[in-house]
């Protein structure tokens, strides 16, 4: 069976509502890459240097990143040589296959939950990416699954940060553990873990202040937060999610690397995918750092959070191509 057919069948087995929401959210991304690749293949029937250069531009234009794109096109060149491909259209499915493979590197599991007791999830990332908003959304999700949730206001630095989390708390009906602005965030985490244990809550979501990964002292502060959580509750944090803004360019790689070093990042949340940004940087992060994407943000409201699904992501990217192939298949 062809690659696209397999992909298609695996996706149609999933709940339709989920797929649709994901596809809608990714609509702009999808048409962008798929449409352009298709157009390129049709226009330049021949595979030559100019073809590769344009292909590179399409992928780089999606923020996939130079290193990853170069590796990808090198692999394609290799395939072209090996399989003696001459027609550009033959290359398209190979490209998609390679992209999915990149996205699948690293296990693709959901959020890791504690086997018993409280699950602690720590959110980290640079300024303004959507940490606090994602916590609000996730709190809402866990609550609607019937779980008890607590949030920790670990951003004691930014003006209005505590109020922002409290407002989310009111919206979704979840309590916030907090101290005064300017307090030591590690102390807030200490309080929050104790409160979580005392009340026996299912999930504790920990907010932290945004910080740029090149700020040594702020990264050390984060490391301290991380260590306090580890010390106060064995096995915690069960997830450390690095929140990345989908509009971010190559700097995201540096973010993933340095936050990983200081706070043991276990997964990525890709926010603002409702924009026209393609979030292609995720491909690079997957292939270079093997970090799985666990969740994606598709808007500012509490429901705008989805699980990441590599197959659906690529399906959305290549929607046009897949539908075409299906048509051709049913006709033939």
């Amino acid at each position: 069976m062809s690659f696209f057919k397999k992909l298609r069948e695996s996706i149609s087995a999933k709940a339709e509502a989920v797929t649709n929401k994901f596809r809608e959210g990714l609509g702009k991304t999808a048409s962008a890459i798929a449409g352009k690749v298709e157009e390129l293949v049709l226009r330049r029937k021949k595979i030559d240097e100019a073809f590769y250069e344009e292909l590179e531009e399409i992928l780089i234009g999606a923020d996939v990143g130079v290193t990853t794109v170069m590796r990808l096109t090198d692999e394609l060149r290799e395939e072209v040589r090996k399989r003696k491909i001459e027609d550009a259209s033959e290359l398209q499915p190979i490209l998609s296959e390679k992209l999915v493979a990149l996205l699948r590197e690293g296990a693709d599991e959901g959020l890791r939950m504690a086997e018993s007791g409280t699950t602690v999830i720590l959110f980290v990332g640079v300024n303004g990416v959507g940490k606090t908003t994602t916590i609000g959304k996730l709190a809402h999700r866990f609550k609607s699954e019937g779980k008890s949730v607590l949030m920790a206001a670990g951003d004691t630095f930014r003006a209005g940060a505590i109020d922002q989390l409290e407002e989310w708390g009111r919206r979704v009906g979840v309590e916030v553990v907090k101290q005064q602005p300017g307090a030591d965030p590690a102390a807030v985490m200490y309080d929050a873990i104790r409160a979580a244990k005392q009340r026996g809550v299912d999930v504790l979501l920990c907010d932290t202040a945004g910080r740029l990964q090149n700020k040594t002292n702020l990264m050390e502060e984060l490391n301290k937060i991380y260590r306090v959580i580890q010390r106060e509750m064995p096995g915690a944090p069960h997830e450390v999610l690095l929140v990345l803004d989908a509009t971010t360019g190559q700097n995201a790689l540096s973010q993933a690397k340095l936050f990983g070093e200081k706070s043991g990042v276990t997964g990525i949340v890709l926010t603002k995918l409702d924009s026209t940004a393609k979030g292609g940087i995720v491909v690079a992060i997957r292939s270079e750092l093997k970090l799985p994407v666990k969740l994606v943000g598709l808007g500012e409201k509490m429901d705008d959070l989805q699980e990441f699904d590599a197959e659906q992501f690529v399906h959305a990217l290549f929607a046009g191509a897949i539908d075409k192939e299906a048509e051709a298949g049913s006709a033939g």
């Binding site: 780089i60 234009g61 999606a62 923020d63 640079v126 303004g128 803004d245 509009t247 971010t248 360019g249 190559q250 700097n251 995201a252 924009s275 026209t276 940004a277 393609k278 940087i281």
Partner: peptide
């Protein structure tokens, strides 16, 4: 504009 923005800067 956030200086970390990628290729979308143009469209935005």
């Amino acid at each position: 504009v956030d200086a970390m923005i990628g290729q979308e800067a143009v469209n935005v």
